[in-house]
């Protein structure tokens, strides 16, 4: 086998992390996107900006502050300790929490755009047919905004796979727990193991290309889905 055991462990861990983060983000990102798409509150601007903030901050900076916030003296750290969970840095779930922050805009924004594009009319029509708010959400919003959800899931997943700076700051390089593919590539390069770095980076590029190709292919087809 060309890959070492630790390379394979890193690939599995990365896929596990990206899958978990995507699922968490779809669950918590949907209500946020829904609120942002529908609200007339003055808070829309500030909350929207807060969600988009990780786009601006360099990942290592974000990671450094997460390391402080999630540490024993940090706000998040004291909260998780009081729940009996201990502190989050150097754990898989610490990476999940950090990645959820980091990939949030990539999931919220496509969903929000799709929901805004719906407009009020389908919902008003459903309301006249006596569909309750929850019924309207599941039978109108979810199916019609489906392309937005699929784009969100793909971008959230791909962005988490490519994450490096944050993991580097709060991961602690623990095999099978926090040593993801990007860190593994970095380690290979730093150790001058260029052949292994090239191989792993090649796999990552092939993977990303396939995902993005799939996304663009899907987007070309998506207007048909909306019309159905």
């Amino acid at each position: 086998m060309i890959f070492s055991d630790s390379d394979i462990a890193a690939i599995w861990l990365t896929l596990r992390l990206a899958t978990t983060v995507t699922l968490v983000l779809l669950i918590i990102g949907t209500p946020i996107a829904w609120w942002l798409a529908r609200t007339k509150s003055w808070l829309k601007g500030p909350i929207g900006a807060l969600v988009a903030l990780p786009l601006v901050l360099p990942p290592t900076v974000l990671g450094f502050y997460l390391l402080i916030a999630m540490g024993p003296q940090g706000v998040l750290g004291q909260f998780t300790t009081s729940l009996g969970l201990g502190t989050l840095p150097f754990t898989f779930w610490g990476l999940v929490v950090a990645s959820v922050f980091y990939s949030m805009p990539f999931v919220v924004q496509p969903i929000q755009n799709a929901m805004e594009a719906l407009g009020d009319r389908p919902l008003e029509a459903a309301a006249t047919l006596r569909a309750g708010p929850i019924d309207r959400f599941f039978s109108i919003v979810l199916p019609l905004a489906k392309p937005g959800f699929i784009t969100a899931a793909i971008l959230g997943f791909a962005h988490t796979v490519g994450e490096f700076g944050i993991v580097l700051m709060i991961g602690g390089n623990i095999p099978g727990e926090t040593r993801v593919v990007s860190v593994q590539i970095y380690d290979h390069v730093e150790a001058l193991e260029y052949a292994q770095a090239h191989l792993l980076a090649g796999v990552m590029i092939a993977f990303s290309f396939t995902v993005l190709l799939g996304l663009y292919w899907f987007q070309r087809k998506s207007p048909l889905l909306v019309l159905k």
Partner: peptide
């Protein structure tokens, strides 16, 4: 980075 882990009391 090792120093950061300790100075932030995470280790």
């Amino acid at each position: 980075q090792t120093y950061q882990f300790i100075s932030t009391a995470n280790a």
